[in-house]
Design a protein around this nucleic acid. Structure first.
Length: 191
DNA sequence: TATTTGATTCTT
DNA sequence: AGAATCAAATAT
């Protein structure tokens, strides 16, 4: 089921939590690629100093103030495209950064790697992500086991003072990163 | 108009 | 620890 607009028209932290375990799907020229969402970060309102909207409504941040369910894609560090989905009602700027997905058993870990793997760039900025065209989210009915969703501080936002400490990063514990599975010689030689 | 700075990743 | 690389924000 394609995730509809009203799903994103809710408190951003709620959306972020529930988005983990859902799927990000990319379609272009007949090629379809889908990844289970493993890690996201929430950016909430003008008060949140880590949120780009804290600088006010500019040409760049305008989309954050718009209706939910649209893409906010921007260039970071001159080389990496960052994919976000806008949340909450029109007029309230907030979004969720997609940081990691699991694709065919492979972990694509890092927002820049994710957009590269899915061939996402600024051409998709302001795109409607609820139409099932080019890029959308799917609920495939896979429940996240209780206790497997962990919160952490957001990454790379030290400049945001107090706001940098908020546990607004959400990550799903995966088989690969599960504790209690020490690497053995046998595992290493297995390949 | 000039300089600084990132919601990062890769190499040394 | 530093480079790559550039648009947006900030300083001048």
């Amino acid at each position: 089921m394609i995730i509809p607009r009203d799903y994103f028209d809710r408190p951003t932290l709620d959306v972020a939590r529930s988005l983990v375990g859902k799927y990000l799907v990319r379609e272009q020229g007949g090629r379809l690629i889908a990844g289970r969402i493993i890690e996201v970060e929430a950016y909430v309102g003008t008060e949140d100093k880590a949120c780009h909207a804290s600088k006010g409504r500019t040409a760049r941040t305008d989309v954050l103030f718009g209706p939910p369910g649209h893409a906010y894609v921007y260039l970071c560090y001159g080389m990496y495209e960052m994919l976000n989905v806008v949340t909450e009602q029109e007029g309230f700027p907030a979004a969720i950064l997609l940081r990691a997905v699991e694709c065919d058993g492979r972990l694509i870990d890092g927002p820049g790697r994710l957009t590269r793997a899915f061939d996402i760039d600024r051409r998709l900025n302001r795109c409607d992500l609820t139409l099932g065209q080019s890029l959308w989210f799917e609920d495939r009915g896979e429940a996240v086991p209780p206790g497997w969703l962990k919160t952490h501080p957001r990454i790379g936002v030290d400049y945001a003072g107090e706001w940098a400490h908020k546990p607004w990063r959400f990550r799903l514990t995966t088989e690969a990163s599960k504790p209690g599975r020490p690497i053995t010689k046998r595992a290493l030689s297995r390949k």
